[in-house]
Nucleic acid binder design. Structure first.
Length: 600
DNA sequence: GCTTATGTTGCGTAG
DNA sequence: GCTACGCAACATAAG
């Protein structure tokens, strides 16, 4: 790679998945160039804005991360901030290189399949015009590509595989965190920073996966430098969205992330004895886990900082002869799972997030399967509407009106707060797929993608495949019950009372199964169990209603179990020819099994 | 190639 | 409140 003017480097730092100053190997490398000019940018990419499913809560979290980072830059240098430009990186970056006389482009490595393609394009363009590119890994404990290589080129399908691969990289020890910079060089003077003379490339507003959240036309791309021409962080106003819809109590930003981490680390007993299966999915205020996952997603917290802070506590406890929990249920184990999914994603690329063509995804004759990719390899998100029942169940699941209070409370918590406990995710995911609705895990992935503030493609897709027994895990006969699983953690039904307030007065005897309460009791508790929970089914008057269960769970569990057993017996995977050409149906009684399943 | 143990986190029932 | 076990039984790694 030919460098530009290396004696006076003009460094463009491209923030993406690293909204922080602490422990950023890429930022460290950028500043090590001793830039004469340093410009940290964020490209407000139409691909993410329109083609990723993002709900109001995650937009808000992202904006808080951007605003906090911008403020931190300004604190170190009053001339600095995060410079947000409104255009796709593939078109705006070459214009910026030219306009600002950039010699070096520096960014953190990404594992996402779309991001990888995008970065390859950008690197090629940079090389063409003599801009030197520096890419550093910093998003995971270990470089996912290196993990894959040490795993024999195969996706990591168990935590043991991940650990063994990590052992070969650095004796299983991630790099130590780097200090945040103490100073930041200047950008160009105001006149040269101004981009008014640049022509903005046209932006494809359609399809807009997030249109349902827009209350008016958006003006995100009205000006390259934003509506105030100040490179400011986009607002809900710009996006045509209503900020009052973003009701999550969880706050974004590096400052907040480091504060939460610091508070967690102080509780040494909690850190040392942490076992995920023993943390309650029903706890709120405070939650039973750290809530640091959204910060890991946006990079407002470095995962290696988290890892080594935890290691510090564990070492201290070992010295004090206090017991520590172990992988995989410990806190370290949770972070290793994240790396495991990242490496699986890195190995599989575009195959990873769908069934079709996926070599590790079992083929199961789910309802509402994603349609196969078009000839050009693209998928438009459409799915096969093979069952009206399943479509209805899917909508009721999504909206939290299945008639099973434990499921509905969790789905409403998810929608309101953008976060639910991992075991709560298991519970609702099992219910949608192999333990209730027999709907494809691909539908669940999309709903979580939209709603979760900590949405990480690798972990989200990986966990959906896990829980649906599509990959990673295969004991489909172990099924979460929407009644007894919640009861075990929360016999009083506090979570249900909070998120399904219409049931708040129910006796604990009925709170998980309100349809079984005698009518007289329902009247006494001020809530009738009737209808399907849709707005049209609600009776007028002051009395509350809660929907009847949408099916008999025990019956559905049996039907699902039978379906899974058959699919496992057939043994097809997503990359099988029969899956690709549709002849899989012959193995599933000519495609009749789905029809039979509905009639039961 | 065989057997055996293990695998992030289940449920329902019996004692 | 706790533990043990049947459930119906897969994939993978280790020996």
């Amino acid at each position: 790679m030919k460098g530009g003017n290396t004696s006076n480097p003009v460094v463009l730092y491209w923030h993406r998945t690293d909204l922080r100053l602490h422990d950023s190997p890429a930022l460290h490398a950028a500043l090590a160039l001793k830039p004469s000019i340093f410009i940290p940018v964020w490209t407000w990419d139409p691909h993410y804005v329109y083609r990723a499913r993002v709900g109001p809560n995650r937009w808000r979290f992202l904006q808080e991360c951007q605003a906090d980072l911008s403020k931190s830059y300004t604190k170190l240098n009053p001339n600095q901030k995060l410079w947000v430009v409104r255009e796709g990186p593939q078109t705006i970056l070459p214009k910026l290189w030219k306009h600002w006389g950039v010699t070096h482009l520096v960014f953190e490595k990404d594992t996402d399949a779309y991001a990888k393609d995008r970065d390859i394009d950008v690197i090629k363009m940079a090389e063409k015009v003599g801009v030197e590119v520096i890419v550093k890994m910093g998003r995971t404990l270990f470089d996912p590509d290196e993990v894959v290589e040490k795993n024999g080129g195969k996706p990591t399908m168990s935590i043991t595989q991940l650990e063994k691969a990590a052992e070969k990289i650095n004796n299983g020890s991630p790099d130590k965190p780097l200090e945040a910079p103490k100073s930041i060089p200047d950008p160009w003077e105001e006149d040269k920073m101004d981009l008014s003379s640049l022509k903005q490339d046209s932006v494809d507003h359609e399809p807009d996966f997030n249109s349902e959240h827009r209350i008016k036309a958006d003006a995100q791309y009205s000006q390259l430098m934003g509506p105030n021409n100040d490179f400011g962080v986009p607002t809900f106003e710009d996006m045509g969205m209503d900020i009052s819809e973003a009701v999550t109590p969880h706050r974004g930003g590096e400052t907040e992330a480091l504060k939460v981490l610091g508070d967690c680390i102080k509780h040494e007993d909690y850190i040392g004895r942490f076992e995920k299966p023993n943390t309650s999915p029903a706890d709120f205020e405070p939650q039973s886990t750290t809530l640091l996952s959204p910060h890991l997603h946006f990079g407002s917290l470095s995962v290696r900082q988290f890892w080594w802070d935890v290691q510090g506590v564990l070492a201290k406890r070992r010295k004090e002869k206090k017991p520590n929990s172990s992988v995989p249920t410990s806190l370290e184990g949770q972070l290793l799972f994240r790396d495991m999914y990242m490496a699986a994603q890195a190995a599989l690329g575009h195959e990873f997030d769908r069934t079709h063509g996926n070599r590790v995804a079992r083929f199961i004759d789910w309802h509402l399967k994603t349609n196969p990719a078009k000839k050009d390899g693209s998928i438009d998100g459409a799915y096969e509407a093979d069952s009206q029942d399943a479509e209805g169940w899917f909508q009721r699941w999504k909206e939290g009106r299945t008639g099973f209070p434990w499921i509905d409370a969790l789905m409403r918590q998810l929608k309101q707060e953008g976060w639910i406990h991992h075991l709560g995710r298991h519970s609702v995911a099992c219910f949608l797929t192999r333990g209730g609705c027999y709907v494809s895990w691909e539908r669940g992935v999309e709903v979580f993608e939209e709603m979760l503030i900590d949405h990480e493609t690798a972990s989200n897709v990986g966990n959906w495949m896990w829980v649906s027994c599509t990959a990673f895990y295969s004991q489909y006969y172990k099924c979460y019950s929407p009644i007894s699983f919640g009861k075990k953690w929360d016999p009083e039904g506090q979570l249900i009372r909070r998120y399904c307030p219409e049931l708040a007065k129910f006796d604990k005897k009925w709170i998980y199964e309100p349809w079984r309460a005698p009518i007289a009791d329902q009247k006494k508790f001020g809530c009738r169990v009737t209808g399907d929970g849709s707005s049209s089914s609600k009776e007028d008057g002051t009395e509350h209603t809660y929907p009847k269960p949408m099916f008999d769970f025990d019956e559905r569990r049996q039907i699902c179990l039978d379906g899974m057993k058959h699919a496992y017996g057939v043994g097809l995977y997503g990359n099988d020819e029969k899956v690709k050409n549709g002849t899989w149906k012959k193995e599933f009684d000519g495609g009749d099994r789905a029809a039979k399943r509905q009639k039961i």
